[in-house]
């Protein structure tokens, strides 16, 4: 068995996405983000602390938007809230930002540690698009009813933003692979039931295929050409049809949110797509979710996945963000699931 993820699953491996927690233990986290060497050390320390060979980088899905809009001359202070009100012009070249360069340097640092799998991270094309327009939901729906870019300016803007984002994402993936990434976590959390109406998808998955799957297929193909493992993350609320389509991409690992019933999802997926995650880590900060409850949920999930006979790595549904004042609460829940007994 040379598939690392299957191997980890067969050993009952568990791993959180917890780089942000460790990053915020540093006195100057913002400075670390721009210092590849120190960022790499944070990733290494995270993997070491939680006992995993998976060197999961920081899940910061703002990086690509920053690069794109910087290249278009948008002032840095305006970038977070900036949205295109009309179709954006094409752009020839997007220079890597200091954040991107530091991420790549961090991956190179991780690649020096033989026991770790250096992993890259990027946003999916659909999710990037949703950050570029003020209301992405209505035009997605209208396009699903048949409205074309020629007929509807909002649909045109959305499609131009998709076209704008994909080359940048592919370029960023190449840069991370060049730096040493051997797996790429592609985060597409906006491909979910908020943006795509299940009623519309019940009639046709055409719009989902066009707006989500086409971009992901291009990413998958690039990763395959580069010999890099494709890991797909989507913690949004999904329909069964969405999960099935993600399975058709054949990612090495599929990371899903706590709204899914993983042991039922197992039936929707090829047997060698390792399921990952699912514990409700977005609520780990909350005292009304007790450590005992997390431990019980972990035991239950492990047991049910074993019964479903599907490869599974227990983990967090998403990046576990550091919440000031709640760090100990959060850490206790990570420890609870890392050490929960397999029932």
């Amino acid at each position: 068995m040379d598939n690392l993820y299957l191997k980890l699953a067969s050993k009952g491996h568990r791993a959180p996405i917890a780089t942000d927690l460790v990053l915020h233990e540093r006195p100057d986290p913002e400075a670390v983000l721009l210092d590849g060497g120190r960022l790499g050390e944070v990733v290494i320390e995270t993997a070491d602390r939680f006992g995993t060979p998976l060197a999961i980088p920081l899940m910061d899905l703002r990086v690509e938007k920053e690069a794109l809009l910087s290249a278009m001359g948008i002032a840095a202070a305006s970038i977070p809230g900036y949205h295109f009100e009309e179709p954006p012009p094409p752009i020839d070249d997007v220079a890597p930002t200091p954040r991107m360069e530091a991420t790549c340097e961090g991956i190179a640092r991780v690649a020096d540690v033989p026991a770790l799998l250096p992993m890259g991270m990027c946003i999916g094309p659909f999710s990037l698009m949703t950050k570029l327009v003020s209301d992405p939901i209505t035009p997605v729906y209208m396009a699903g009813t048949g409205a074309t870019a020629e007929e509807d300016e909002d649909v045109d803007t959305l499609e131009k933003c998709l076209q704008l984002g994909l080359p940048l994402i592919l370029q960023y993936i190449e840069a991370q692979v060049d730096a040493g990434a051997r797996a790429m976590i592609v985060c597409e959390p906006a491909a979910n039931m908020v943006y795509f109406s299940p009623n519309q998808l019940a009639e046709s998955f055409g719009i989902f295929d066009r707006y989500v799957m086409d971009g992901l297929r291009q990413i998958r193909d690039l990763l395959a050409r580069r010999g890099v493992d494709f890991i797909l993350h989507d913690c949004g609320e999904l329909t069964d049809g969405m999960v099935r389509r993600f399975g058709e991409l054949h990612p090495a690992m599929l990371s899903l949110g706590s709204s899914r019933v993983l042991w039922e999802d197992a039936a929707l997926l090829p047997k060698d797509v390792v399921l990952y995650g699912n514990l409700p880590s977005k609520r780990f900060f909350a005292k009304d979710l007790s450590t005992a409850q997390v431990e019980a949920a972990a035991c239950d999930l492990l047991g049910r996945m074993q019964a479903a006979d599907h490869p599974f790595v227990l983990g967090s549904e998403c990046d576990i963000l550091s919440v000031s004042g709640s760090e100990a609460e959060i850490t206790s829940k990570i420890e609870a699931f890392l050490h929960a007994k397999n029932s």
């Binding site: 939901i137 209505t138 729906y141």
Partner: peptide
Amino acid sequence: EIFVPEVLVAAR
């Protein structure tokens, strides 16, 4: 019975 996109289209 309906979802966010339908709500947004109705609100529009």
